[in-house]
Nucleic acid binder design. Structure first.
Length: 749
RNA sequence: AGCGAGGUAGGGUAGCCAGGAUAUCCCGUCGGGCUCAUAACCCGGAGACCGAUCGUUCAAAUCGAUCCCUCGCUACCA
């Protein structure tokens, strides 16, 4: 029996938690905690809502409310969601709490005393109108390096340059629009660099860490550590506990990680044993685990250990089993991407245990994993319900119906094989779980379920019932012992249903009291069994499936020959104006008339190939239904088709042009039906368009026979699909071509 | 283009770090068994030159090199 401290990454209280959070950092620690409890260890499991920081103040301003209101709202929602998932924290705390403030401030002052913090003057934007310093994301302007517009003041997303206050051209406050001053301000910096050696020592023996965690940390340390500002000019957060520092707070990443400690202390106070936390934080024998997502690794492997080292006398992390991402429909499952599946709505439809099972068996522990409702259904129905659930039910209902109570046990030699199997599965399970290998341990449980079903079949209790009821009872007793073992081993994963099974077994007490120790002990003979009801039901979703799965909207399906090409809407047009892109070397900013009310604005990377005068007035072909995209800050609605023979070893880039004069807006669909619906760039890339000289009705590149070579210029563009080759034309004798030499087979992009 | 991950039977995967004898599991498929059970369970079959090539080795899915392809993030891709 030992103590274990389980620390869980703090979800940010600016939105509802979703399945990505659950699979990534919330469910694993709960499984691990329950596993430890069944092993007989004492667990302290803490975490909570991260409630400070600028994004919450932004939300609050948007909603015309206070940051506290926003933070509290999501704290309550998420706390409830976590409880509904049966994730049992000792305490799910929050950073906006008195104890947390005190602990953060104490650590701050301790580090200050020891010389790990120092003050540095920095420049910061200050808005006179708003009367305050502005956070980085409150100031936008033009990037001095690349000229992109509406760039945030800390970093240009367009060119990646890191910016300092004052760098931005034409800065403005996004709140009031005024031009902010650059004023001197001071901040406390954490002397991270002072911990480098100690941190290297710290990770040196961490061979049990997952390789990505260790490698990532090692790389960070090798690159050298830069001191970081740990205070900000704002009021939403933990105040800096130094006179004259009003209006400044401690920055999130110093604030939030300390939450592990403050939540432990807060919990101790709550249970009336104010020193309880010390048993976990000050006894070096207690292992500390940190369950986080992979984006959170350095905060837990470097910054937090540095803070702990600076404070001294507190346990450092023992392991940081960081998970990868749960992907949904190909995209990262995150709040910002909109593909999120938040916990409250999922739990409205499905039992927590089903969700826990699926996320466990599909956990992104070593790689990103994909979430889909289709897969959810398959795994739940075929594995959980059919194997495990059905086994539970056939055993319990058969015994209950025919015996009404627990029948007498078989003599040891009769059940030896089964008990051995339980033992060997448990060994495997235990090994995996002790290493936080959740997926594999659960697979071991499912293996036992499979073995169990086989045992049931082979021992044929339904036949024995007629021939030898006593023997039947002995077999069922053995079966029920497997049921018991399955329920105990499943409990960390699916607590609620396991407890239900426990009731049906009429053992009394709880699974937690039984523990792994009592898992294989005999059943209470003669105990009356209640009538069982299946604990897992198959999931069915005809409508739901459509709704939930169709987050990535189904596109109108174009099938058949030239499907990829027919998704394009190609139009003839005339370049009516050419300007240099203000912020890019290679890009032109064009207006192209494609027969619409006003010309399209299109950004094109052609500066290197066409001087301005050769662009102006030029007849071109435009992909008109391409999803508009910002190119270095400027919207581009479409793209010009150009041939490029790089793949053929050339270096020419030539704009496509109609062979005969056609009105702007003329459709180039080679006489086929095409779709006007909006497409992505990658959809465009799927269509195969090639340029080649044409001789005797044959497309020289690849010697492909053209289906019609009518009106064909000597060099032309063709659309290729399988073995079919068709000229790209307007269907009326104007064929797409280029006006100078290019290698045959050049692609079009 | 940069970074990250990955390419193993029709689909999805395990194994790869610590190289060895019939390559795992799930779905699907084909055949059989059973009838206690949630049309579930059990057994058996077919189906994979482990992305390609080269190398290291007595031995490579596993180690090294090169290349190809896919996905995600990022981008002066249009």
């Amino acid at each position: 029996m030992s103590k274990v401290c389980i620390n869980i990454a703090w979800p940010y209280a600016n939105g509802k938690i979703h399945l990505g959070h659950v699979a990534g950092s919330l469910l694993p620690p709960d499984i691990f905690s329950r596993y430890n409890r069944l092993t007989g260890n004492e667990v302290l499991m803490v975490g909570g809502s991260d409630q400070h920081g600028t994004p919450i103040t932004v939300t609050a301003e948007k909603e015309h409310t206070t940051p506290e209101a926003v933070a509290e709202r999501y704290h309550e929602i998420n706390k409830k969601a976590i409880e509904d998932l049966d994730i049992e924290y000792s305490l799910f705390n929050k950073t906006h709490c008195k104890t947390h403030y005190e602990v953060v401030q104490k650590l701050f002052l301790d580090l200050l005393d020891r010389g790990y913090l120092y003050i540095k003057q920095t420049d910061q934007y200050y808005c006179v109108d708003c009367g305050r310093f502005l956070p980085d994301r409150y100031v936008e302007g033009i990037c001095p390096t690349c000229g992109a517009v509406d760039v945030r003041s800390d970093q240009c997303d367009t060119c990646g340059t890191t910016l300092e206050p004052g760098d931005l051209k034409e800065p403005h406050c996004i709140q009031c629009g005024n031009v902010p001053d650059v004023r001197q301000t001071e901040h406390y910096f954490l002397r991270l660099s002072a911990f480098r050696e100690r941190l290297l020592d710290f990770i040196a023996d961490k061979d049990h860490w997952r390789s990505n965690v260790k490698t990532f940390t090692q790389n960070w340390l090798n690159e050298g550590l830069t001191d970081r500002a740990i205070t900000r000019d704002m009021t939403w957060g933990v105040p800096v506990p130094v006179d004259g520092w009003d209006g400044k707070v401690i920055y999130v990443w110093f604030d939030a990680v300390i939450g592990y400690l403050s939540a432990s202390i807060e919990y101790s106070k709550m249970i009336g044993k104010p020193d309880y936390w010390k048993e976990f934080w000050q006894d070096p024998a207690v292992k500390h685990y940190y369950f986080v997502g992979k984006d959170n690794i350095p905060f837990h492997s470097i910054i937090w250990p540095a803070i702990l080292m600076g404070e001294g006398g507190l346990n450092l992390p023992y392991d940081i089993p960081a998970n990868e991402y749960l992907m949904f429909g190909g995209g990262k499952l995150s709040k910002s991407r909109g593909g999120a599946i938040d916990v409250p709505s999922v739990l409205k439809k499905y039992d927590a245990d089903l969700v826990r099972y699926y996320l466990s068996i599909n956990m992104p522990d070593t790689h990103d994993s994909d979430f889909s409702w289709e897969d959810f259904k398959i795994k739940i129905n075929n594995e959980l319900v059919s194997d495990l659930g059905n086994y539970y039910h056939r055993c319990l209902s058969f015994t209950q119906k025919n015996f009404g109570s627990i029948p007498d046990a078989a003599p040891p030699e009769e059940s030896a094989e089964v008990m051995e199997k339980i033992g060997s599965i448990f060994k495997e399970y235990d090994e995996h779980l002790s290493k936080c290998d959740f997926k594999k341990a659960l697979k071991a449980v499912m293996d036992l379920a499979h073995f169990a079903n086989k045992y049931f079949d082979q021992s044929k209790p339904w036949a024995l019932l007629k021939s030898d009821k006593e023997a039947c009872g002995r077999v069922m007793n053995t079966n029920l012992r497997i049921v018991k073992a399955l329920a105990v081993m499943s409990w960390p994963y699916m607590p609620r249903s396991s407890e239900k099974i426990w009731e049906y077994l009429a053992i009394g007490g709880t699974i937690e009291e039984c523990g792994y120790e009592g898992m294989t002990s005999p059943l209470p003979r003669g105990a009356a069994m209640p009538e069982p009801v299946p604990v897992y039901k198959k999931v069915e979703f005809e409508d739901e499936k459509e709704k939930l799965n169709k987050v990535p909207a189904a596109e109108p399906d174009i099938a058949g020959p030239f499907a990829d090409f027919r998704r394009l809407d190609l139009r003839a047009g005339t370049v009516v104006s050419v300007q240099d892109h203000p912020d890019a070397d290679k890009l032109y900013l064009l207006s192209v008339d494609i027969g619409e009310e006003s010309p399209r604005q299109i950004v094109a990377g052609l500066k290197a190939y066409y001087p301005r005068e050769r662009m102006l007035g030029r007849k071109v072909l435009v992909v008109s239904n391409l999803k508009p995209a910002k190119l270095r800050g400027i919207m581009s609605s479409g793209m010009l088709l150009a041939a490029d023979d790089e793949d053929m070893g050339g270096s020419a880039v030539l704009l496509l042009t109609p062979s005969k004069e056609v009105p702007n807006g003329t459709k180039f669909s080679s006489g086929m039906d095409s779709s006007p619906s909006r497409i992505e760039y990658k959809d465009f890339q799927r269509a195969v368009l090639k340029v080649s000289t044409v001789r005797d009705g044959t497309f020289v590149a690849g010697s492909r026979k053209l289906e019609s070579a009518e009106g064909c210029p000597p060099r032309a563009v063709a659309v290729i699909d399988g073995d079919r080759t068709v000229l790209l034309s307007d269907g009326n004798g104007s064929v797409a071509t280029v006006d100078s030499e290019i290698r045959d087979g050049a692609g079009v992009r």
